[in-house]
């Protein structure tokens, strides 16, 4: 997956985000919604669960299966990489950004284009702006990404 330069991130996301405001569940690609509920932690009721090992997302990502939404032949479209990552890992990001530390948020910083030198500063920014990035309990990925894009454009020195 390519690292992105922040400005292109903001530029690319702006139009789709304008359309996808608010709590629309299929905002963006909807790949985060593949994480739907029929897997429980340790509940016996799932004994005959109708889920096959690893079908989570596998049809969308079939190799050479063509283009659809945010995927292309089994890869996430480069321009949508940050959006898909944020959507799929949203809960992990929401947790780790509160603290400014953790594998998911650090990887996200890399994906956005932070170098070794300014990663810590970017993580600190995530933490200090947390309340604005996640203004409510029901903040969606697209809301988060548009605020993030705005914050980053105010601090271009943090990337690349």
């Amino acid at each position: 997956m390519r690292k992105l330069v922040a400005l292109s991130l903001v530029a690319v996301m702006a139009p789709s985000l304008a359309l996808a405001r608010g709590n629309h569940p299929m905002a963006g690609c909807g790949l985060g919604y593949l994480l739907l509920s029929n897997k429980d932690n340790g509940k016996v009721t799932q004994v005959l669960g109708a889920t096959t090992n690893g079908t989570f997302g596998t049809q969308t990502f079939g190799i050479s299966s063509g283009t659809s939404g945010c995927t292309e032949d089994g890869a996430v479209k480069v321009a949508r990489a940050a959006e898909v990552y944020a959507d799929v890992n949203f809960d992990s990001l929401r947790r780790e950004m509160a603290v400014g530390r953790g594998e998911f948020v650090e990887t996200f910083a890399s994906l956005l284009g932070a170098t070794e030198a300014n990663r810590q500063a970017l993580l600190a920014l995530f933490q200090s702006e947390y309340a604005e990035l996640f203004p409510s309990a029901s903040t969606t990925t697209s809301d988060f990404l548009s605020v993030l894009g705005a914050k980053i454009s105010q601090h271009p020195e943090l990337l690349g």
Binding site: F56, Q59, T60, F61, V88
Partner: peptide, 8 residues
């Protein structure tokens, strides 16, 4: 076969 991001 499919290829998908490891984070998934």
């Amino acid at each position: 076969f499919s290829t998908l991001p490891y984070y998934m």
